[in-house]
Computed example of a mutant assay.
Amino acid sequence: MKSLRPVTMLQFILIISTFQISVAFLSIPRELARHAGTDGWMVIFLGWGLAALASIAIVKLMKYNPNSTILELIQRYIGVWAAKVASFIFMAYYLLLAYDGYMIASLVIKLWLLPSTYIYVLVLLLLIPTFQIAQHGFQAIGRYSEIVTMLSLWIPFIYVSTLSRAHWLYLLPLFKEGWFPVLSSIKFMIYPMLGIGLVLFLYPHLVNKEKALPAMIISNTLTCIVYLGITLICYVYFSPDEIGVYNDPVISIMKSIEFQFIERVEVVFIAFYLFVFSCIWIPSMYLVSRCSASLVGIGQERYHLAVWCIVIEISFFLYRPSFIESATINYTLNFIGFIMEFALPACVLLYVAIRKKRGRGKHT
Rank of each mutant, 00 (worst) to 15 (best):
I186Y: 05
A51T: 09
G49N: 09
A212V: 04
V207F: 05
A134Y: 01
F335R: 07
V182H: 00
I329Y: 08
V23Q: 12
P240H: 06
L114E: 12
F180L: 10
R143A: 14
C309Q: 01
P204Q: 06
N330M: 03
L14R: 04
M91Y: 14
S164L: 05
L349D: 07
L26A: 13
F323G: 07
F272S: 14
G297E: 02
P204F: 07
T231D: 03
L333A: 09
I310P: 03
L113D: 11
T223Y: 00
P29E: 06
I155V: 13
T221P: 12
I21S: 11
R5Q: 15
P192N: 11
I225C: 11
I324S: 13
V267A: 08
L71I: 15
E266S: 11
I186T: 15
G299Y: 05
A83L: 07
E146N: 08
V276N: 09
K357P: 00
R264N: 14
R5N: 14
V23P: 13
V23H: 06
A57Q: 08
L200Y: 06
P6N: 14
I141A: 07
I190M: 12
G79S: 07
Y191G: 11
F180T: 12
K176D: 15
M189I: 01
V276Q: 09
S17T: 14
C347H: 05
I233W: 04
V23K: 07
V23D: 14
M193E: 03
H205Q: 06
I44G: 10
N220T: 12
I243E: 08
A92C: 14
L107G: 12
Y286E: 04
L95Y: 15
W112P: 09
A346T: 08
P181M: 05
M340Y: 06
M42C: 08
K211D: 11
L122W: 08
I28C: 06
L126I: 00
R5T: 13
I217K: 05
L232K: 00
N208V: 07
R143N: 12
L202G: 13
F25T: 02
A86I: 01
H136G: 09
A343R: 01
I119T: 15
V307H: 05
Y94L: 12
I70D: 10
I78A: 15
R355S: 04
S252C: 02
F238M: 00
K84C: 14
I13N: 06
C234P: 01
Y77T: 10
I158A: 13
A353K: 09
I74N: 11
F90E: 07
I78M: 13
G37M: 03
T364Q: 09
S161D: 00
S315G: 06
V296G: 12
L124H: 08
S322M: 05
N334G: 08
G47H: 06
I21M: 09
E341K: 04
M285Y: 12
D248P: 02
V352K: 00
Y246E: 11
I243C: 08
G49Q: 03
I336D: 01
